[in-house]
Amino acid sequence: IRLYEREDYRGQMIEFTEDCSCLQDRFRFNEIHSLNVLEGSWVLYELSNYRGRQYLLMPGDYRRYQDWGATNARVGSLRRV
């Protein structure tokens, strides 16, 4: 999964292949505005340590956080399923 700091895949990008319990420890931002799921399925959590609202993401492109059903861009952790 590739996470981007801004909409439309702009700004700083980070790629994950494994679970991350605290996004801010690995990426200086806690807001993700766009992403690409390259393979497999992922769950994004609004808070760190896999807490808060959850969003199940299938392979595909998500140009804005609204595309995955979120009401804001906050992402605290993520897990591959």
Rank of each mutant, 00 (worst) to 15 (best):
E18N: 14
F16W: 15
R63L: 13
S77R: 00
Y55W: 09
Q66A: 10
M13C: 03
D25Q: 07
R79E: 14
Y55R: 10
S48H: 01
R79N: 02
P59N: 08
A70Y: 08
R51V: 11
H33K: 06
C22K: 04
V81L: 13
Q12V: 14
E15D: 03
G60P: 01
L23G: 02
D25F: 07
T17F: 13
G69M: 15
Y50N: 10
G52R: 01
D61Q: 07
P59C: 10
E5C: 03
S48A: 05
G11L: 02
G11M: 02
E15R: 06
E18Y: 05
A70G: 07
I1C: 10
D67C: 04
P59R: 05
G52N: 01
E7N: 01
N72C: 06
R53W: 02
F29N: 06
S41W: 03
E5S: 12
Y65Q: 08
R64F: 12
E15G: 06
S48M: 03
T17M: 03
L3C: 10
Q66M: 07
R26M: 09
L44R: 00
S21I: 10
N36P: 00
D19E: 11
N49S: 05
T17I: 13
E5I: 13
L57S: 09
N30V: 15
R28S: 11
D19G: 12
L35S: 07
N49K: 05
M13T: 04
D25M: 04
S48K: 09
R64L: 14
R6C: 13
R53S: 12
R28A: 09
D25Y: 03
E31P: 15
M13N: 07
I1P: 00
E46R: 02
H33S: 14
H33T: 06
F29V: 06
R6L: 10
R51F: 04
M58H: 10
R2D: 02
L78A: 10
R53A: 13
R51T: 12
R28W: 10
F27H: 02
G76P: 00
Q54D: 10
R10Q: 06
Y45H: 04
A70Q: 08
R6A: 12
T71P: 07
L38T: 07
C20R: 13
V37R: 00
S34K: 00
G69C: 13
T17Y: 10
I32Q: 02
R6T: 10
I32T: 07
L3W: 01
F27T: 05
E5Y: 15
S21Q: 02
S41A: 02
C22V: 06
L56W: 10
N36T: 04
D25N: 03
G40E: 13
N30T: 11
G60A: 07
L38C: 05
V75S: 03
Q24R: 10
A70T: 14
L35P: 00
N36K: 08
Y50S: 01
S41K: 12
E46P: 03
C22R: 07
G69Y: 11
Y45P: 01
N72Y: 15
R26Q: 11
Q12S: 09
D67T: 07
D67S: 09
F29Y: 15
Y9K: 10
F27P: 14
Q12L: 03
E18R: 12
F27E: 13
R2V: 04
A70R: 14
C20I: 07
V75T: 03
S41F: 01
Y55E: 15
N36R: 10
F27A: 06
C22M: 13
R51M: 03
L44C: 05
N36Q: 12
S77A: 03
L78I: 12
Y55G: 10
Y62W: 11
S48L: 03
A73L: 13
N49I: 01
T17L: 09
V81A: 05
A70I: 11
D8Q: 14
Y4R: 02
R53E: 07
R53C: 04
D8V: 07
W42G: 00
H33F: 08
S21E: 13
L23A: 13
T71Y: 03
R74P: 10
N72H: 06
E15K: 15
Y65V: 07
V75N: 03
F27M: 04
T71D: 09
Q24H: 13
Q54A: 04
S77Q: 00
R53L: 04
E15C: 10
E46C: 03
Y50H: 07
C22P: 05
R28Y: 09
Y65G: 15
M58I: 07
S41E: 13
E31K: 09
L78M: 14
N72K: 06
E18L: 09
D19V: 05
D67Q: 06
S34N: 00
G69I: 06
V37D: 15
N36G: 05
Y55N: 11
G52D: 01
S41V: 04
E31W: 13
E15H: 03
L47M: 03
G60C: 09
A70K: 14
D61H: 02
E5G: 08
R6Y: 05
A73I: 01
Y65D: 12
H33R: 09
Q54H: 04
S48Y: 03
S77F: 00
L57V: 12
I32Y: 15
R64P: 01
Y50T: 00
T71S: 13
Y9V: 01
E15P: 11
R51E: 15
Y45M: 01
G40W: 06
Q12P: 09
L44N: 00
Y50P: 00
R63S: 07
R28Q: 14
M13F: 10
I32C: 11
W68Q: 02
G76W: 01
D61P: 07
V37A: 10
Q54V: 03
R63V: 08
R64Y: 11
N30A: 11
L47V: 04
L35T: 08
S48I: 04
R28G: 08
Y4L: 01
Y62M: 14
T17A: 03
L38M: 08
Y9D: 06
G11K: 02
L78V: 09
Q66D: 04
I1F: 01
Y4E: 00
Y62G: 02
G76L: 07
I14L: 05
L44M: 09
R74Y: 05
L78P: 01
R64D: 15
W68Y: 03
C20H: 05
F29S: 14
W42C: 02
M13I: 08
Y65N: 14
F16K: 04
A70N: 14
Y9R: 15
G76E: 10
G60V: 11
S41N: 03
G60L: 03
N72M: 14
G60R: 07
L35Y: 02
D25H: 09
Y62D: 00
I14P: 00
N36Y: 05
I32W: 13
S34H: 01
V75Q: 04
E18A: 09
R10V: 09
N30F: 02
S21K: 07
V37G: 02
S41H: 09
R63G: 13
R26E: 12
T71L: 12
T71A: 11
M58D: 11
H33G: 13
L3R: 00
G40P: 06
D67H: 08
Y45T: 06
E31D: 05
L35Q: 09
R28C: 07
L44Y: 06
E7L: 08
Q24P: 11
D8I: 04
R28M: 13
E7Y: 01
E5V: 12
W68E: 02
F16C: 08
P59E: 09
E7G: 05
W68N: 04
E31S: 04
S77K: 01
H33V: 11
D67F: 06
R53M: 07
D25G: 12
L23S: 15
D19Q: 12
Y55M: 07
G69S: 08
G52A: 01
G40V: 11
C20D: 14
S41C: 01
R6Q: 06
R26C: 13
Q66G: 11
I1V: 05
S41R: 11
Y62I: 06
R6K: 08
S21H: 05
A70H: 12
N30C: 03
L35I: 15
W42R: 00
G11S: 05
F27W: 05
R74A: 09
L78R: 00
L38F: 06
V43L: 05
S48P: 14
C22I: 04
R64H: 03
Q66T: 06
E46M: 05
R79S: 13
I32P: 09
N49P: 03
Q24S: 09
Q54C: 03
N49L: 12
P59M: 07
